[in-house]
Simulated assay, not measured.
Amino acid sequence: MENLHNTKVLVAQVSQTERIAFYKKTYAHVAGGVLLFLVFEFLFLQSATLVEFALSMLDGYKWLILLGGFMLITNYAESTAMRTSDKNVQYLAYAVYIFAEAFIFIPLIYIAISAVNSFEILNQAAIVTLGLFAGISSIVFITKKDFSFIRAGLAVGFFIAIGLIIAGALFGFNLGLWFSVGMCVLAGGSILYQTSNMVHKYSTDDYIPAALGLFASLMLLFWYVIQIFLSRD
């Protein structure tokens, strides 16, 4: 495995044609992840029992248990996708992560649909999210800078956010609009970081791990954009 890893060629070291091919593969897998997420979400929402269970997990410590389980799955998926070169295993890890993401989105999607009895909020949030995702990603391609230096800042930001989420769940206070705005900023930084990694850190064979990282950041942004739209009503 060590020798195999050493033979990998970084995207930054190959020709422009090969880099473009890698980017196309990566973003195609991000799009595929979004489509699979929509399929899972549609199937989940068909079950009233599953929806009721997901909504019941929003209360206090139950939400923390659900969030903790999601974080464990996230860590498993990301580490598995990175430490193996077996594409079947990487695809499995990606699919497991998408499944978990779709499940944790059940209550938010249900609430967003119920708020206006239509998909209006979700459609607006999706447009804003994709626009921000494209705009932030383009910064890396335009500037060609390595943004890996923001990793420490993101880690601190997410650590503080997790602390606030835990406090809110335990003591029953609403984190409010500005927390959602702050999380959108963090999600934007994560997109910038993941896009930079795709350009500067990954090998030409790592399009699945790269797609997983971008998909995770995209869905985090989508979550809090929905929260902002819900706060208007």
Rank of each mutant, 00 (worst) to 15 (best):
Y97S: 14
Y97A: 12
Y97K: 14
I98R: 13
I98A: 03
F99I: 06
F99E: 09
F99Q: 15
F99M: 15
F99R: 04
A100M: 00
E101W: 04
A102C: 15
F103K: 01
I104P: 03
F105W: 02
F105R: 01
I106T: 08
I106C: 02
L108D: 03
I109M: 10
I109W: 14
I111W: 07
A112S: 12
A112V: 12
I113H: 07
I113M: 06
S114M: 09
A115I: 06
V116L: 04
N117F: 07
N117H: 11
E120T: 09
E120G: 02
I121E: 00
I121S: 00
I121W: 00
L122R: 14
L122I: 10
N123K: 15
N123C: 05
Q124K: 12
Q124E: 09
A125C: 02
A125K: 00
A126N: 09
V128N: 01
V128W: 03
V128K: 01
V128R: 02
T129R: 03
T129D: 02
T129A: 03
L130N: 11
L130Q: 02
F133A: 05
A134L: 03
A134W: 07
G135Y: 14
G135E: 11
G135W: 12
S137F: 13
I139H: 04
F141C: 09
F141K: 13
I142P: 14
T143W: 07
T143F: 07
T143S: 13
T143A: 10
K144R: 08
K145E: 13
K145M: 06
D146H: 10
F147G: 15
F147R: 13
